[in-house]
């Protein structure tokens, strides 16, 4: 009889595998980008291990290159990571009976893809062993793929022509992730309002437009859900 942990781990990996493909180019692009602003191989690997947040890393690179003050770099990373506060709040009930060490590891490892794919199943699951397997296996797998492919980008950066616009692969990866989410109308509303909000509010300082757009999108999605339900009742 297979343990609940292993069943959870296998199901988590199976659900997450298709998403992880989008990670490969994203990680390689991040590796190349770190080298392209002049970080050494060691500095790039160190940044990747410590920060482990692709969007924040990519967003901070221009500031590091420009010699911006440290508080501005930290604030920018914070703004680009703020969505994780929201994810953390949503997924926190899953860990309410876990040890502090597990919660700390889970915090460092929490990424968009695993959250997006697994949060619903995790919140519904009763068995804590199954939950732990379902969360930690794809999260650890994501870490390995990310670190490995970023290293490929870091050490392969010299061999890729600069003018190939490789950074656009980041956008493609994000699009591929959002598509399966917007199957219901409220989700679509949330995505459209969030995206257009970020476009229109891009003038806000410190890239806070992204955070403001996210907040608007959430509110719009919630409102759309509310109206949809009321429309059904009447």
């Amino acid at each position: 009889m297979e343990s609940a942990f292993r069943r959870g781990a296998r199901e988590g990996l199976r659900d997450f595998l298709p998403i992880s493909v989008g990670l490969v180019p994203w990680a390689m692009v991040t590796g190349i980008a770190m080298r392209s602003i002049g970080l050494t191989e060691l500095e790039s690997l160190g940044m990747n291990l410590l920060v482990y947040a692709g969007t924040a890393q990519l967003g901070a690179l221009p500031l590091i290159a420009a010699g911006a003050p440290l508080w501005l770099i930290m604030l920018t990373a914070l703004a680009l990571n703020l969505r994780f506060v929201i994810f953390s709040a949503a997924i926190a009930p899953v860990f309410h009976d876990s040890s502090f060490a597990r919660r700390l590891a889970s915090s460092y490892l929490l990424v968009d893809g695993v959250f997006a794919v697994g949060v619903d199943k995790l919140l519904k699951a009763e068995d804590p062993h199954w939950r732990w397997g379902y969360y930690i296996a794809p999260s650890a797998f994501n870490w390995c793929v990310w670190q490995g492919c970023t290293a490929l980008g870091i050490f392969g950066a010299e061999f890729v022509p600069r003018d190939w616009s490789l950074e656009f692969m980041v956008t493609i990866a994000l699009m591929v992730m959002v598509l399966p989410m917007v199957r219901t109308r409220p989700m679509l509303v949330a995505a459209l309002v969030g995206g257009l909000g970020a476009v229109l509010l891009r003038g806000l300082p410190l890239r806070l437009g992204v955070v403001a757009g996210i907040a608007l999108g959430i509110a719009a999605g919630f409102a759309a859900e509310h109206w949809q339900q009321r429309g059904r009742r009447s």
């Binding site: 969505r83 709040a89 949503a90 917007v182 309002v193 969030g194 909000g197 608007l216 919630f222």
Partner: peptide, 19 residues
């Protein structure tokens, strides 16, 4: 918590659309 289910879609789109 119900409202926060919309966070991932809104966040990913907020990163994609400006680009």
């Amino acid at each position: 918590q119900r409202a926060l289910r919309y966070a991932p879609a809104a966040a990913l789109s907020a990163l994609v659309m400006p680009d």
